[in-house]
Design a protein around this nucleic acid. Structure first.
Lengths: 120, 120
DNA sequence: TTACTCCATCGACGTTTGTCAATATTCGGA
DNA sequence: TCCGAATATTGACAAACGTCGATGGAGTAA
């Protein structure tokens, strides 16, 4: 039996580390970065991330996200899935409810990649 | 005659100031932020921004961008236009050449919007 | 003027995206 | 065990997107 501790520690994809403006980004890293940015580049998904971030414990139930967003339940589910696959949220089910939680350093890491002067 | 000094100081659209995670973003600001992120959420455009940023004076000629990117000239022009309309680049023509230049605080401002902990 | 170069715009195309209604799945309670 | 509630998945469709070849416009040099 394998004991898997801390599955939340992300594989930390190739996007890591050197900011956009320090040296020319290579095609592969550009692909990765673009994937993450694309996940965030939608008004509904930005609102979802923001609402989750503003919730208690940076965690929110899907049922509380649908009405404020004003879209159908399948659409909200779809957006949450995209945010999860991009590494910005994690999901945990409790009973019939699903709770989405902010991945701690995810936004910060992306933020630092965009600019050197902003970080440090 | 009007004397226009420092036309580079952007109108500073509504995206400004409060980071995503501080309080719930409203629909209008989400729309604006998404527009900017979408402009950056493409591997080719990321490479273009990066290449311009790495150039002398953070400025590059279109003619020097086409080959490294490996796409047709119209496509590169198209991407540069999108980056310009989103406020990340400015264009200045000198002779037949067109030079695109990084807008000084643009990436940093976006970066700070994504996260509080990364900035400051 | 003519010819050539650099770049932007146009029109067309296949692909991706955001959305919904309908359906499936999973769980808790009667 | 059967039912209702909360989510996820599927299928469909219009709109937006990334790309190209062809064309247009503006500058330079003969």
């Amino acid at each position: 039996m394998t004991v898997t501790l801390l599955p939340m520690a992300e594989p930390q994809d190739a996007v890591c580390c050197t900011p956009l403006t320090r040296e020319t980004i290579d095609a592969e890293r550009a692909e990765d970065l673009a994937r993450k940015l694309k996940a965030l580049a939608d008004p509904t998904r930005l609102r979802l991330v923001s609402m989750v971030a503003a919730s208690d414990g940076e965690e929110a139930c899907v049922c509380d996200l649908i009405d404020p967003v004003g879209l159908s339940q399948p659409t909200v589910s779809h957006h949450l899935k995209i945010l999860m696959e991009a590494g910005f949220l994690t999901r945990s089910k409790r009973g019939t409810w699903a709770y989405y939680k902010l991945v701690p350093g995810a936004l910060g890491q992306l933020s630092q990649l965009l600019d050197v002067t902003a970080s440090r």
